[in-house]
Amino acid sequence: MWAAEKSRANPLVPLPATISAVRELTIDVNLFQVQFGDGGGFPYRPGQFAFLSAFGVGEAPFSITSLNDEGGPMEFAIRRVGTVSTALHDMEPGSVLGVRGPFGNGFPLDTFKGKNLVIIGGGIGLAPLRPIIKNALVYRDDYGEVVVIYGARTHQDLVFASEFEDWAAVPGVRLELTVDREGPGWDGRVALVPAVIKELQPTVENAVAIICGPPIMIRFVLAELKAQGFENHQIVTTLESKMKCGIGKCARCNIGEKYVCQDGPVFTFDQISGFLEQI
């Protein structure tokens, strides 16, 4: 009559893992490589995320910015902004942290096949897009033209800058960088991301636009893409929302009835058009 079986794993309990390497991406963003004791990780898809625990401080969700198919450790690009991210920044290689995941739906890669990709990122929002870019480089023949439009406040806030050259060197891949404010050491474009879309007028036919960035950028980019003639189903975005559990229970991350942790974080514009004021 009473439960005889031993409790199954509690999805709210993380697995201990080790930081194998840390690389500084910008003044407040570090790239963390994370491995479990056996040197591996769990399989994940582009666009999924995991919770990282700084034991004694707490836990927060971060998108996985590496590509599973490349092998190697899981990578997280983390901006120092809250208590958990600050505690993670204070950690060094060899430190133990907790990992729960992977969570979320990830990008619908199957629907991207054979299409031109317009990848639009703002600031740290490039982190969830990086596996999509890497995927398009690894499986180059699966996709048409790839345009990456990436902006940040200043050129010093552009993350993964050391990889830009490699990305742009691949045939059929274009990287368009922009910054909000000019400054010494930058002779590139100074414009907001929506203005760059307007300027470039990416091909709408057989294209899919994939967006990640701060909510205000997402809103203006959506408007610009619509103006360019993109249909709702051609627009995919990842959303950020406060979350604690990752398994659709704590009821924090929902935007309307969509749970960002389970139904998302990747949504088509069709799915969220009714809730725009809430993102």
Binding site: L12, S53, G56, V57, K244, C245, K249, C250, R252
Partner: peptide, 16 residues
């Protein structure tokens, strides 16, 4: 059933 999860540190130990 909304909930929060936070850490409660005490010396070398911490409770989630």
């Amino acid at each position: 059933y909304c909930f929060d999860m936070r850490d409660y540190p005490r010396g070398n130990t911490a409770e989630r």
